[in-house]
Design a protein around this nucleic acid. Structure first.
Ligand SMILES: [Mn+2]
Ligand SMILES: [Mn+2]
Ligand SMILES: [Zn+2]
Ligand SMILES: [Zn+2]
Lengths: 136, 136
DNA sequence: ATTATAAACAGAAATAATTTCTATTTAAGG
DNA sequence: CCTTAAATAGAAATTATTTCTGTTTATAAT
């Protein structure tokens, strides 16, 4: 919790109740959630909470490296806590059953500057699986 | 052109003027296009052409392995020709300037069955760059 | 060639995730 | 305690995609 607050502070962003609550949700569940999933959980805590605020805050937290974001083919963005390597590129593996997120180390693409004549700008990798808990 | 038609035939799908035209578009441009981009090009050829048909056909062609599809954070699906390895998992590198698509060989994930206790179900990789032509 | 039939189609309307806009509230520094 | 820019709520707009319905067409069987 604390280190995430510090990231916000260092970037000159306000520590608002909504931001703390959103970070708290992810710290406690370690899952990927959709914007609406987060919104739904926030409604337990706040009488009033606008969906646009949720969207705005989730994107802000992604920009800070606190959250990771994946775009599934279901047209929804999914957000999860990015627990380490805040400034290093890395990827995540997600459980398609329970939504749990874990970090993967550096991948072979991270070093490559040129591939097939293309100057590499960025790359994105998403691995989906079934976690040990859900396999049982 | 011919081999793509054969894929459709083998799957018992009809060879319609729209399908031929869509394949033709991709064969001639080797770029990623959005659904609306394809629709716009089809309008040059057909007086009447419904956007729902374009969506339906693009998805059909993806299922056949003729096209590859990526989901960008712009909320749009992008489609490109998948020229080889029709039955082998592989990835693509895309030029963010001109949209050109090229194939990448197998990646390190392809062999892995278990990662961090997760039974791997599938993975997705997208590499973006600037092609040789656009670098000049 | 003609016909039968399921697949493909057009067009309109609906859906739903996300964004934009505006007025109001609030966190944080002095 | 003030001040102020950032954050927020709520309504409305946007837009990629899907659904629905009635019509057309590719293809196989006659
Ligand atoms: Mn991470
Ligand atoms: Mn391919
Ligand atoms: Zn799981
Ligand atoms: Zn290019």
């Amino acid at each position: 919790m604390k280190p995430y607050i510090d990231i916000l502070k260092n970037k000159g962003l306000k520590i608002t109740p909504r931001r703390k609550a959103i970070i708290d949700i992810f710290v406690n569940c370690h899952k990927h959630l959709t914007s609406e999933g987060v919104w739904s959980l926030l409604s337990n805590e706040f009488d009033k909470c606008g969906l646009p605020s949720v969207y705005r805050n989730l994107e802000t937290l992604v920009e800070c490296g606190i959250l990771t974001r994946i775009q599934q083919f279901d047209r929804k963005k999914h957000y999860g806590l990015c627990t380490e390597h805040h400034n290093h590129p890395h990827h995540h593996i997600t459980c398609i059953s329970c939504g749990k997120v874990e970090e993967l180390g550096a991948c072979e693409m991270d070093n490559k500057r040129i591939i097939k004549g293309y100057k590499v700008v960025n790359h994105f990798m998403q691995v989906n699986g079934i976690c040990a808990g859900c396999s049982k």
